[in-house]
Amino acid sequence: MSPPSMMGPRDRGAVQMPRLLGRAALAAVILAYTVYTIGPFLWLATMSVRTTEEISRDHYAWPKTFHWEQFHQAWVGSNFATYFWNSALVVVAAVMVVTLVGAAAAHALARYRFRGNRLVYAVLFSSIVFPPQITLISLYQILVGYNLYNSLFGLTLVYISLQLPLTVYLLEGFFSRIPQDLFDAAKIDGYGDIEIFFRIVLPIGMPAISTALILNFIQLWNEFLFAVVLITDPEKRTLPIGIRSFMGENFQDIGMIAAGVMISVVPVILAYIFFSEKLIRGMTAGAVK
């Protein structure tokens, strides 16, 4: 599993596909699939710079005049900056905490033998299947009791609990494959259990941890149900709720909705293009194997 052998099969794979016909077919499929994934997105982009009147005349025309002012209007007319900041705050905090807490639990479950190990694992994991709608009301009551209702901190706590099972599941699988020898050696070198976690498990588990980070981030960034119930103050809305209320305020204004959606999506896409190599390398290093 050293780097050279990882690159090997790929190069040979390239040599393995000599037939021109196969190549052409592959290219066609790949092209078609690319259109399928980013086509809708480009369509959205063209609509975002056209007025609704222009769009309803022809939904697929290339914009003649670029109505950038729609972006300005959408930005000024709604609180996208606030929504964006709120989302970022809640999601980043929740992702950091849940990943650390989840990693600690996953490590204990993957490494140590103790009575009830599998029980704890099953308990933590089983909550992954619970339909979220119904913890919703009880969670709501708990948050109200602690004065955390309609607060970003309360939402953060809920988000941590939402992503915990997935995090434990992903990391436990990876951590349990770290060879025991490493731990034995570390122990002999005098590392304590907690040191081992921070100095060995976390660095070695980085590929899996970054996968967990990404997954948690994506899911929470787009979370909708809990946000709509737990946050009522427009100043505290997260992005998905913001987009929806924006849609509600522009009921038939397709051009404006498209502009709003673009505003909400572009920063994520940009960040992704910038970081994609790192993210995908993290995932490619493999966690869900």
């Binding site: 807490v101 989840g102 600690a104 639990a105 490590h107 204990a108 479950l109 140590y112 103790f114 704890v120 308990v123 933590l124 909550s127 619970f130 119904i134 913890t135 009301i137 009880s138 969670l139 708990i142 706590l157 809920v158 941590i160 609990s161 915990l164 434990v168 259990d193 907690i194 976690f197």
Partner: peptide, 24 residues
């Protein structure tokens, strides 16, 4: 040591998942 690793996760689990689910 086990408590150090497991208690945060279990606390979150019992407070924000198990308890509401039990209530449900």
């Amino acid at each position: 040591v086990l408590a150090f690793f497991l208690v945060p996760a279990l606390a979150i689990y019992f407070g924000l998942t198990a308890y509401p689910a039990f209530k449900t």
